[in-house]
Design a protein around this nucleic acid. Structure first.
Lengths: 360, 360
DNA sequence: ATCATTGTTCAAAACGCTTTGAATCAGTGT
DNA sequence: ACACTGATTCAAAGCGTTTTGAACAATGAT
């Protein structure tokens, strides 16, 4: 295996110059750089990672904790993220090591990983509303990046979508179609994204002057059956006048809602509009919607490269404030939404005094 | 962060002695070793992995390729193995990095990983009958360990179970109960373990002088529906006299076979004996069998520590021949097997001349 | 001719560990 | 007293990088 010294000897240069040339430092002449690059290529030079890491003081390893369910399965998104992250991190000469965890303490696995190995940082995912991990890792001085965000304005690097906008855009879109009774099938409320979406959904309804009885906000996992179970009583009219539009946190939930409508003889979009947020996970792409589903869309796949980039920049010392990305999901109108049905333009009655709209 | 030199300074020793003391070399006196250990503990010493790796010439990283299905899911056993392996490898100061792969070429992902990073070795799993990976990795001089084995007598380190014995023990057990018509619901035939089990099943039947029409060996994934689909026509008598015992490659398949029996009004074990090989995966533990299932059992969880150990020993230079573990699955008799039903003691008719038993 | 300036390169130190070969020290037998 | 052991310990070299501080050469200005 060729080393820097070998290349230097080959060209009559010092190892220092060769190192600089390969790392693109400005003070080496263009001619030298080219000669070095050529020789490195020719000799099949591969930098020794251990030596690089020793010299730079970094381990070149970042960690991620995989939260397992009791049945030893993980989030559907896991492999998608794993594939994307390993590739993106590899491009920056960094390895990803995983630890699986089944415990109740959210920070314990991080503590274990920290004391065992020296990691350069962590990738966190699935933030909960009162997530203790950011404070814990900050206290230990460990860089990390979050996939998502656990509060509206975090002080750490993260990549997430504008969750309030998802709800707001959806409500406004439905209102423009004349809808006045919109229900929400949300994600699991322990997750921060779900809390944000629910809050913004309520705010948006209030901003439109529309009542929203509590019973018309459900929450559950991103499964077809969760969508079905939530939608069925609403559409059967068991909770009061049925909603004319249902907003779902995930596409499988939307599939369930549509099945509930079908079972009750309701036509989409004639009698009911259904829309969802779409993470564009490959396994849900297989869901064939009829009619095709109107969605707000933000491919999860697109998160990996920025996450890797931002984490490594943060490890390299970039301030967190510069490493925050919020993307706005785009609204794609398809066939599952339509104008409010004739005669169904009445909002729900107010069950409680109107909510005072939050400032801002 | 304390270094070896710090500890040496603290005790008036050289870094070399401290290194030896901590690594348990025999030439340091017991007193010194204790003092060093105490000081290391007190100063919170953690060895710098990069420095260790640079000095020893090893990267401290081993790789594993995760084969994904088209729907971005992996083997059910994946997380079980991941958790066990990372823990076992961590105990030997080694990290596991994963690469996910969806391609058709079995060796391409290994080639990619090799050229990108310098790995100390690989963990391979799910060997197929004509697995090209051992030859490829050997040609590149990369150590590896196999979970399972791709042929009867491999020349590489592996940890696997004695698959022929699984079939043999099961057949002999059923024969002892008087059964003469046994059918096999096997694993997917591309996997080596399934080929071994099928071969040994046929041999064992032949050794008992029993006919085995081709139609009574099925194969499929380890799912309940695969078991059901395979068993139903047999039990309905559509393929000739129905088997009095069914041997399954996995417990979900056994669940399917038992459901098929129930649907046809057959009682287990009165009318049909069912047994299976049990990998003891946690997600299948949830399967409640009624009656409880007779199994050959070899917990997959037990494979991780030996796999890690053998791989690292191999990297350290131990010869492959010393690093091969074959465990014999134990037979646990429960309620799903019983004596052959009265009047069903007749073997299947020979459809072809009796197979000459393979030597050995 | 001299002096600064800029651009390019180098030798050497550092990173923290392992390992080699030599040195020290106690104890033993002569 | 002597050399000879065996048990401990040490200083130094090395692993392959990155980075520092200095050196060198070419250029331009004085």
């Amino acid at each position: 295996m060729a080393t820097l010294k070998d290349i230097g000897a080959e060209l009559g240069l010092s190892a220092a110059t060769v190192s600089r040339a390969l790392n693109g430092f400005p003070e080496v002449s263009a001619r030298t750089r080219d000669r070095v690059r050529e020789a490195a290529e020719r000799l099949g030079y591969r930098p020794n990672r251990s030596a690089q890491r020793l010299a730079t003081g970094r381990s070149g390893v970042v960690g991620m904790i995989v939260k397992l369910r009791a049945d030893m399965s993980a989030d559907q998104t896991f492999f998608e993220v794993l594939a994307g992250l390993t590739a993106a991190l590899a491009a920056r000469d960094t390895d990803l090591v995983l630890a699986v965890d089944q415990g109740d303490d959210p920070v314990a696995p991080y503590a274990r990983m920290l004391e065992r190995d020296l990691l350069d940082g962590f990738v966190l995912n699935a933030p909960t509303a009162d997530d203790p991990r950011p404070a814990f890792l900050r206290a230990h001085g460990v860089p990390f990046v979050m996939h998502g965000q656990h509060c509206a304005r975090p002080d750490y690097p993260f990549f997430g979508i504008d969750n309030p906008a998802v709800s707001r855009d959806s409500v406004e879109f439905l209102v423009a179609l004349g809808h006045r009774r919109m229900a929400l099938i949300n994600g699991e409320t322990r997750f921060a994204f779900a809390a944000e979406r629910a809050g913004a959904f309520r705010d948006a309804m209030a901003a439109e002057g529309l009542a929203l009885p509590e019973g018309f906000v459900a929450s559950g996992p991103p499964t077809e059956s969760a969508g079905y179970t939530a939608a069925l009583p609403w559409l059967a009219g068991r909770c009061g006048p049925r909603p004319t539009a249902i907003l779902c946190a995930s596409t499988p939930q939307a599939a369930g809602a549509m099945r509930a409508a079908r079972d009750l003889g309701l036509k989409v979009p004639r009698d009911l509009s259904v829309m969802a947020h779409d993470d564009a996970l490959p396994h849900t792409d297989a869901l064939r919607f009829d009619p095709p589903l109107t969605v707000t869309r933000a491919p999860m796949r697109d998160a990996c490269a920025p996450l890797a980039q931002q984490l490594i920049d943060h490890i390299d010392g970039a301030p967190a404030a510069r490493l925050q990305t919020v993307i706005r999901a785009g609204l794609t109108v398809r066939g599952s939404t339509g104008p409010v049905p004739q005669g169904e333009e009445t909002p729900w009655p107010r069950t409680t005094p109107p909510v005072t709209q939050a400032p801002g």
